[in-house]
Amino acid sequence: MFNNLKKYQPFINAGIKRSFAYRLDFLLYRVGDIMGAIVTYFLWSAIFNSSKHSSIGGFTIQEMSIYVFLSFFTGIVINTGSSPTIGQEIKDGSIVMRLLKPVSFMATYLFEEVGKKIVQVGILTVPILGGLIIFQIFISTVVPFDIFNLLFFSLSVLLAYLLNFYFDLCFGFTAFVLKNLWGANIMKTSIVAFMSGTLIPLVFFPSELYNILQYFPFASLIYTPVLIYLGKYDNLQLFNAIFLQIFWLVIFYTLSKIIWRIVSEKITVQGG
């Protein structure tokens, strides 16, 4: 097993080097993410200040503040660029070089992303997640810090990333047919952001829509991990939430294998 993992070490190294090679690009994207979180925070603050109730949708202003920043942090961690990469490599023909390597085609994308995540998580965990934990510890009457919630949150985020990766991989394979995924990727990103609870917690949606969306795979990406961290689930709900993430992960992993077998027999590229 370890010998097989050694085959992918160069891809991990490539992911790390690529992150450091475009440091300014990485920094600007992260500044944009933080600015988006700050704008969203002030928006929700205005909503709560104009409300006569101390809580809205089961969230207090303090819980919503944590939700906003934690959802943006989780979104960065689980973000995957496999489908844009596949689309670009098909356009310029460089995907041929990846196909020629004596390793799993899909695993090469996964381990490249592992390298990128090592850099991203390493840089962002202390200022964002660490800041939230310090805030909870020193102001424990607001939202008490719970180490078990943090551990289950970490597990949930890992499952969410793998789920998002294989979902994005399935979507990326459509590039073998569509040839260009630029517009489709923008549409996909917007839909996922809306249905995952990144912009608005799903509980704020109409009850009929919420009852449907909470079982969709997108809810498992952002909404589920953040609610686990906030301690919004009891033991049974926590088990069901983790099980649902594993269920969708298995579904999309299997789909990625099936779709790859189909499209790999009809490969054409525009470049090369």
Rank of each mutant, 00 (worst) to 15 (best):
Y166Q: 00
L27H: 00
V226S: 01
V263K: 02
T80M: 01
L132A: 10
V250I: 15
A175H: 06
S51W: 10
S154E: 13
V39H: 02
V142Q: 07
G122H: 05
F148Q: 09
N185W: 00
I95L: 04
E63I: 07
G122R: 02
P102K: 05
V250Q: 08
Q9L: 12
R98G: 11
G231C: 02
N49V: 15
T80C: 02
Q62E: 15
G15S: 13
Q237W: 08
I123K: 02
P206T: 15
L28P: 11
T60D: 07
K101A: 13
S45M: 11
K188R: 12
A193E: 07
L129Y: 07
G197P: 07
Q88H: 14
P84I: 01
V157L: 00
F218H: 04
L236N: 09
D146H: 06
K257W: 09
G183Q: 13
I133M: 04
A160W: 00
Y29Q: 08
E112Y: 05
Y8G: 08
F42S: 09
F42C: 09
R23T: 14
S190K: 06
I222P: 00
N240K: 10
L178T: 15
N240M: 14
E265D: 13
K7M: 14
A46L: 14
S256I: 06
L162W: 11
D25F: 06
T174E: 11
F239K: 06
R23H: 05
V103I: 14
Q214E: 13
I90M: 05
D234N: 09
F48P: 10
L150E: 04
F135W: 14
Y22W: 09
N180G: 13
N240S: 13
G183K: 06
S220C: 09
I123R: 04
F173T: 15
S94L: 10
M195Q: 12
E63D: 06
I90S: 03
Y166H: 01
I86A: 08
M64C: 03
N4I: 15
A21E: 13
F26A: 00
M187T: 15
N185L: 01
I258C: 05
I123Y: 05
I137W: 09
V192P: 00
S256A: 10
F153S: 03
D168Y: 00
A160I: 01
P127Q: 07
T189H: 01
Y229A: 03
N164M: 01
S156L: 09
I38H: 04
I267L: 08
L163H: 05
F216E: 11
F73C: 01
T254A: 10
R18W: 02
F243W: 11
H53W: 13
V192Q: 02
G115N: 07
L28K: 06
V203T: 12
G57Y: 09
D146A: 06
L230S: 05
K6H: 09
L132C: 11
I38V: 15
L150Y: 04
F216I: 12
T141N: 10
A241D: 12
N149W: 01
R23D: 06
T60L: 02
F73L: 03
L162G: 06
L199G: 04
L181Q: 13
P102F: 08
I191K: 03
L27S: 01
G32Y: 01
G87F: 00
L209P: 08
L236F: 14
I147G: 05
F218Y: 08
E89K: 10
Q214C: 08
L244G: 03
V119Y: 02
T198C: 00
H53T: 15
